[in-house]
Amino acid sequence: MSESTFARCPAAWTLWRAPLIWCGLLLALAFGMAALEPLFRAVEPGSRQVIYPHAEFLTLLGRHLLVVGVAALLAVVIGVGAAVLVTRPAGRDFLPLLAQAASMGQTFPPVAVLALAVPVLGFGTWPIIVALLLYGLLPIVRNTLAGLQGIDPSVLEAARGMGMGGVPQLLQVELPLAAPVILAGIRTSVTINIATAALGATVGASNLGAPIISGIVNGNTAYVLQGAALIGLLALTVDSAFERCQRLLGRHGR
């Protein structure tokens, strides 16, 4: 790494400031929601309860993260795996189908996917994870394909020419070069899934969407605000963290 690159690289704190601040706010709010009771009392003066009573916010946050995290992890493994397989000579036949299906699938609204998953899979945590996984696959597959196919053919030719090929070429040349595009796909996937997981509260999942749904059903704006603020902060934390990662990766850009 040259000196100039190093000079452009700000200290870790400056780089990670935004995600850390969002994360700090998120945790502070999750821990200390009760301390804000007077504020919510002012919003909702008529109600007896102004802090969502059915579960700890920290638990809700944990469950939300768990569902999104598991779905994202599976989606990355399966999505990147599938895209890699169909770009190998052996799987080439399936490439057009997968590419088309992934781009068409993204037309489906996430709510509809979630809603359609329930009749087939039933209520509960696993159906939500499966629905998130299915929907989250699409941007990852699409971006991985775009990333792998977008590599300058002369680079691959050079890799092959120098006796690489197969797995080393994939791991040392193709995936690193496609990484920024793949990461962008993962970011899209996770962002959408955080939002969609919240909707899972309507199919009985207990996560950060639950206070919002409960607030809407019971006409308690304070609950709605609590859930909404936490989900918003969670989304911002994750998204800004991804943005920094992309920036770090982009530095070794092509």
Binding site: A195, I212, T221, L225, G227, A229, A235
Partner: peptide
Amino acid sequence: NFLQTIPSLALFGLLLAPLA
């Protein structure tokens, strides 16, 4: 970009109070 990041359910919820 900020707006787009906020999940829809949360944004609907956050708009609820000021509009009310």
